[in-house]
């Protein structure tokens, strides 16, 4: 059981956390304002995504527009560091730089490469929940000839405003899956981060 003092302390900590972003710290407890902010943010981003995917522009034009959205709304470097896990600290500064650049490139190609597959898609906001590490904004994905499926967006609100740090499709997290892929690849190549960077170079050049 929580004592009244503990609850008061928690409330104080929460309100302090809400005040922190202005000082440049990420907040630890997502309050109702953060939930609303994150939900509006995801609503805006998914609206733009759907608009581009279903729009009449040429493919190259759509890909450029998508890339702009990824750059503006995804915390790509944070996701990249998460995906490298414990190997981030083993990597040399040079390797870290290469890795971040390649990660952005591969992620962008993977996303923009699928524009055509998503024609006719519809995304509607469902339920948002505060999380320790941000806000989980729920959406429902509808595609022609496929049952509706849940897609959740994990949003962190940092100094630079809200950013997407993970996408969870039907319960599977993109960044967790990516991290286990990288971790296993590096481990099977003698714990050598350079092997991953070389493999990513190949992926990026395809």
């Amino acid at each position: 059981m929580l004592s009244r003092r503990q609850i008061l302390t928690a409330m104080l900590a929460a309100s302090a956390a809400l005040a922190l972003p202005r000082l440049g710290f990420a907040q630890s407890v997502a309050g109702p304002d953060a939930v609303r902010q994150a939900t509006d943010f995801v609503g805006g981003v998914t609206g733009k995504l759907v608009g581009i995917v279903n729009g009449g522009a040429a493919l190259a034009e759509k890909q450029r527009a998508l890339q702009a959205i990824v750059d503006a709304s995804v915390a790509v470097d944070d996701v990249a560091r998460f995906c490298l896990g414990r190997f981030w600290r083993i990597a040399t500064p040079e390797q870290q730089k290469d890795y971040l650049r390649l990660f952005r490139e591969v992620l962008t190609t993977n996303i923009t490469g699928r524009v055509g597959d998503y024609a006719g898609v519809k995304l509607t906001l469902s339920r948002s929940q505060p999380r320790e590490d941000g806000v989980m904004v729920g959406t429902t994905l509808e595609r022609p000839n496929a049952p509706a499926s849940p897609v959740d967006w994990l949003v962190e609100i940092g100094a630079g405003g809200p950013k997407i740090v993970d996408v969870i499709a039907e319960g599977t997290s993109l960044r967790l899956t990516q991290r286990s892929d990288y971790a296993s690849f590096i481990a099977r190549n003698g714990n050598n981060v350079q092997a991953l960077i070389d493999a990513m170079k190949q992926q990026a050049s395809r």
Binding site: T172, D181, Y182, S184, F185, M200
Partner: peptide, 13 residues
């Protein structure tokens, strides 16, 4: 890069 590990992670999740 390691489809075995990717399927393993996806299955678990």
């Amino acid at each position: 890069l390691d489809s075995y590990a990717t399927f393993r992670s996806l299955y678990r999740q």
